[in-house]
Nucleic acid binder design. Structure first.
Lengths: 364, 364
DNA sequence: TTGTATGCGTTATCAG
DNA sequence: CTGATAACGCATACAA
């Protein structure tokens, strides 16, 4: 029985465990790190002492000696509302859950002016405070992130890209989202499919439109410029744009919007014009937000699951930290969520029963 | 000119700086830690080399040697919506800002089942990963926090109390809030002041009611049990309660609610009853949420600034970490925000011009 | 399979 | 005012 006084404030060390178990420090260290070359008997003996003493290894010492660090810094934009925004909240949830599952730690940082100016993002690595960094909500102004392009430090962009800078990232397949939405409408029989895009300055809006155009081309549908308008992710603006679209000599039979809020704007307009969804016009949104299951009719949409993407970001980062580098860019598939706002187009229905000519005028 | 190769991946150490500056490691360490016994000349010399080399001290080594840790763990309740809730968002903002200002680090943790079961909250200290802990949104079930009652580890409760467990904390002066609200109404001339309380099971609701009762007693106003009802922090329930209150043979001339959402319920009821605020009845809310400046009439309320309280929590915690222990319980003053929903009571106005008798009946 | 010895990058106690 | 030198607690190459 050795001297066992201070087991709380002073901290009990590996040496103490070794003495108590009658083995060397190395042996204890080995069982701690699951080194295979330890007999089951001594392993159990050591483990028993460890749990009796409530021993916890000193992380600073461990990191210093092993040159590792299990802390991941999540960098958030310097916005007043970051913590209240649903998108950030979900991303944060995913990041937290995966970090916890991998037994890493999460350190929060805001990308303040000083953060960039003083190169704090690099200094965190130089001081060995973190093993990797996640960057959420980057904007095109974040040019300084090119410091991470050489791969010297484990770094991952969460669901975004920086043009001209090749950085590891996990990103939603926005292009695929546009394509899958258009394809769904094409398969239903639509030919005049309008697209109301988000702000053209954003990556996601552009990609969705590319996908939409590709799907149309693949189906041999000729491109009609008048069916593509900008809605800037804004409900009211989209409402107005929709009215214009429906006033065309040949109005669309289906509309695809860059996100769901814009689809709500379409619903607003169509309601005012007494145009029924999906009877007269099919509608498909772009990001499957929570409210979209609750509208009347419930909105068909394309899901880009930010929670899952966030988790994958953590996995990629840890791969980077631990040396499994490939692939450094991962695209997360989009998924079509079919609800009630899409259906076979009016014309086709008419065709089927062309004898009932009155139907054609209901929308007039 | 010495060998200067790897200044990034390998990390440059204090030894390298010492060599480059032609001094000893001790000297460099001293200037790093602002030890006074260093001549201005050598200090400058060393500082110059440090900035030239971009040297950053290894935090693990520093913490190991100095037995300190600048990381603070913020523990949040395991709620799906924590990151989306306005209260938590504001608290988190305050905590982050103050931690950053004090040059500490913020580590996020959720109080999961395992977190409590495995005593992870203690292990973080034992592993020397953190220097202190902040606990946000504690509930009465968090009995395990009594482990912190002996003060062995720096710990602060953010704007809450645990009955029967004396823990360091910063908390809004809810009692003062109740008192200041009641006093404001009393000073305006009200005598029949109703209180619609939040759930009695909560500390904040009870305290506000205590304060209200105290203010009434201090003013020599006799206690009328029928004027105190429970609204459970719920708008609809409060609406119903208000209708009952106003149907009393002697209805109140003023109402104080535990929080602002409940005050909205009062407004709902009074509007339905065509009772004017503040002409017929004065109304005062309890927590000054953002929407309260926008109602008609704008709501007089009592502010408990969670952002500021959160910052003070960090200051208290750092005081604890660094040894300046007193006081361990800090009460943050509440502040009356006077807007448009409180005024001199009807009766007094009548008195002033008692000749106009019709006025009395407007509310009937 | 286990033990010995050294290093990780600091801080801090002594001398000088 | 500055410089050796011994911790700090652990990991690991090398021996045994």
């Amino acid at each position: 029985m050795t001297k066992k006084k201070n087991n709380k404030r002073q901290g009990i060390t590996i040496e103490r465990v070794a003495a108590e178990a009658g083995v060397s420090k190395t042996t204890v260290s080995f069982v701690l790190n699951n080194n295979s070359s330890i007999s089951e008997k001594t392993r159990e003996k050591v483990l028993k002492v460890i749990s009796e003493l409530g021993y916890q290894p000193n992380t600073n010492a461990r990191n210093l000696s092993a040159k590792t660090n299990q802390t991941i810094s999540l960098v958030l934009p310097e916005l007043g509302h970051v913590f209240e925004d649903q998108y950030f909240a979900r991303a944060l949830s995913g990041i937290y859950d995966e970090i916890e599952a991998e037994d890493y730690r999460l350190m929060l940082k805001k990308a303040s002016y000083e953060f960039a100016l003083n190169k704090e993002y690099i200094n965190l690595f130089l001081r060995k405070e973190i093993g990797g960094m996640l960057y959420l909500g980057s904007t095109l102004e974040d040019k300084y992130l090119k410091d991470f392009a050489d791969g010297d430090f484990p770094f991952v962009l969460v669901n975004s890209t920086l043009e001209g800078i090749e950085l590891p990232r996990v990103i939603a397949d926005y292009r695929g989202a546009g394509a899958i939405a258009a394809r769904h409408l094409i398969e239903l029989g639509h030919r005049r499919i309008a697209h109301i895009s988000g702000s053209w300055s954003t990556f996601s809006a552009r990609e969705r439109q590319f996908g939409y155009l590709k799907a149309l081309a693949d189906a041999g549908i000729s491109f009609d410029e008048s069916l593509i308008v900008e809605g800037h992710f804004d409900r009211e603006e989209t409402r107005r744009a929709t009215k214009n679209l429906m006033s065309l000599s040949e109005p669309p039979t289906a509309i695809f919007t860059s996100n769901d809020v814009m689809a709500f704007g379409v619903l607003d307009a169509l309601k005012e014009m007494s145009i029924s969804v999906p009877k007269d016009v099919s509608l498909i949104g772009g990001d499957n937000i929570e409210a979209s299951g609750l509208t009347v009719p419930a909105l068909t949409s394309v899901e880009q699951p930010i929670y899952e993407i966030a988790r994958e970001c953590v996995r990629l980062l840890i791969d980077l930290i631990e040396g499994n580098d490939e692939p450094k860019v991962r695209i997360w598939p989009s998924k079509l969520i079919i609800r009630e706002s899409t259906a076979v187009p009016h014309e086709n229905k008419i065709e089927k029963r062309r004898n009932i000519s009155t139907e054609l005028s209901t929308r007039k």
